[in-house]
Design a protein around this nucleic acid. Structure first.
Lengths: 227, 227, 227, 227
DNA sequence: CATGAATGAGAGTTCATTCAT
DNA sequence: TATGAATGAACTCTCATTCAT
């Protein structure tokens, strides 16, 4: 993957020669910016930081992007693009609703471990202009709707326990989105391990199967749901 | 609760009289700041914004806080305080591990619907100085360990399916934390409804009980984990 | 006049004390800026130049004006204000059209010798935003219409030779506006001398009275107006 | 005239073929620059703007001109050249001083309707380096002296009313220079119409002939200058 | 105490100008 | 030759922070 290649060969190498593919340079800038945004927050990342890490000067960035915000927006676009891509693949595959949800969790979890994916969920939307915000919101809503539709399918085909698809989708999305907050590329678990464990936990639930659900007495308000 | 009172009586009223409890004023500032941080991001919120909304002047803020960052840090402290409080209550209660987890979800979900709680999870930690960051991280870690210990208890007392408590805790925490991203005080669902639905979904899982777990063949990457 | 007072006591003195009339300071800034705009052009005048000449710092200017352009616009407003003022006075006075035109020339010429007046005519309108430009244009058009109406009156009451009021107004306005280009406060002629000579030249014409006016017959370039 | 030809065939066409007279290209650049300087002011016109309108790249400009300022200076030179040209012609023609002044007005007015001429009078001299400024001032002074000498001649030969030639020259020059501010090539009046009307107004004056000059009593400040 | 005024440091952005190909 | 890429210098503007009253 290009991503890996770039990781191996640091981004600033894209700028050693003047005659290098501009698209490569553009991506190098985005990668670097995304990383810095995640490390220090968008607000504290200056264009100088970005430039310095790429061994170029600040105005050089303006050959590739019109403004700092455009860089931010492109990170969002790239990230949501990654997600949509896998969603489309999943939606096309046959399978029960539950299977689709599992596949969603798996794919999504993987995206959350790469910088662009993390940007989408971690960066503060308040830093986008209202126009850009609208665009990003549209992407996110599309993703959310997809997940809900999978759950709905599952309820209809009997693979998923009847529930409010909206809330269930939020729970799942939340769990998976959160990965971007604690995942560390150098950490003990691979992205795949995390992804499959998440699929397991969220679809099967925490409660032990084969015995009656426990009596939730004592827990103040938890709805009684046992048989 | 003070919080509710303040909501009814807007924060700036705390400053109408010179003879008002300084602690009240301090809290009013924090509440206002927290709200603005959530609305516009920390970076885009100026102390002028805060002051203006409170009908006071900027330097007046410096009577109550040493710096902008201190305000931010106090928001974090207040939010984590709310969480710890309920955790201690829960830990003291008897019950199975699963029950404790349920109670945790319920309590946590509620905290995520108030501004200070949302700040803890939504604001970008990159805006904290490294010292303050260390402090906040300590709080968060403590919360995370508590949740893991509940899960561990549950595994040991048989109420929870054997699993990696770390990952399970992340899944649950993620789902619940995410509430702060989409919850709207004026929305259709009350905080309590959300909380109990979440407890349900996360403990029981999505998959329908009483039938064999579905065959996830065909779904590209989902690891085959049953039988 | 305030203007004179300020000239005697240099503008930066307005800033020696922190507690000075803000309006005075605002005007001091405007005066200084106007002078610099005339000396170096708007584009080459930096806010630092303005600040330095006033012995204050750059951001202090932003206490009194929202932007550099606002300073420019205010110069225009002040200048056009001076003109309008005298126009209104003149219009009210009785007298033939020609007398009004003379009075106009006289008053206008005087305005062209003070900085704000010079700004109105010398600075490049291209440096105004389109909104501000519209405003300024409105002012200028009003002035122009006034002059034309005086000429029209004169034609009607017989004090002015029949002619196209539009062109005549342009000729007069041009001659007088141009003063701002060559007038030097320290120069040999006082503003009043200039003003009255102009009134003379423009109303009576260059040509010696008492002999027939020459024939400007349609001849394009140098008219051959023989013997 | 080259000027006309270029107007018909837009300037950028000069660059369609590589084998084109470099002088033609140089002029095309100047024409385009002059136009932009007049449209947007020198300060706001970037070399990119110029290049874009000519469909060439920015560094290409540097083949023909050493710097942006050189372009500006060349515009001035071209414009003053046009004026001098006609002045020499006029000076050579026999005729009274008044006739020469008329011819001057006529010729000058025409120059003020073409871009290079307008540049000379409209652009802010503050944008020139001091060296270039000195050069331009020399040109302008020469023109001014010429006009004054015509007036002086007229006074001596009796065709012009005795007056201060300096002031009179300023009045005339001002009126005519100002044309560059309001003249629009597409406007209702042709350059020639304007020119001859101006000659009329300025030489004959506004005041109606054949009756005594009016009594300017009542007009506040007008000096009483009649007998 | 509280405030209007002021500041220093730094951000994003622009642009004339020059390499390097 | 002619150009895309890069730069350095500068400018406007912002904001947390602190005097001075």
């Amino acid at each position: 993957m290009a991503r890996e290649a770039v990781a191996v060969q640091p981004h600033w190498k894209a700028f050693v020669s003047r005659r290098r593919d501009p698209a490569t340079k553009r991506e190098a800038i985005l990668q670097t910016a995304a990383q810095l945004f995640l490390e220090q927050s968008y607000g504290r990342t200056t264009l100088n930081d970005v430039a310095k890490r790429l061994n170029i000067t600040k105005p050089a960035l303006y050959h590739y992007f019109r403004s700092k915000e455009e860089i931010l927006l492109e990170c969002y676009r790239w990230g949501t693009g990654l997600i949509e891509e896998s969603l489309t693949t999943i939606a096309g595959h046959c399978g029960t609703g539950l299977e689709k949800v599992e596949a969603f969790i798996y794919a999504y979890a993987n995206v959350m471990t790469v910088n662009f994916g993390r940007c989408v969920m971690r960066l503060d939307e308040g830093d986008l202009s209202s126009k850009a915000l609208a665009e990003v919101r549209t992407y996110k809503r599309k993703i959310d709707r997809r997940l809900r539709s999978f759950i709905q399918e599952g309820i209809e085909d009997g693979s998923i326990t009847p529930c409010d698809p909206k809330i269930a989708a939020f729970a799942i999305a939340g769990a998976v989105n959160w990965i971007c907050m604690w995942y560390e590329p150098e950490g003990a678990r691979t992205a795949e391990e995390i992804a499959s464990q998440f699929a397991q936990t969220l679809t099967q639930g925490l409660a032990r199967r084969g015995r009656p659900a426990p009596h939730p007495n004592g827990t103040r308000k938890v709805s009684n749901r046992e048989s």
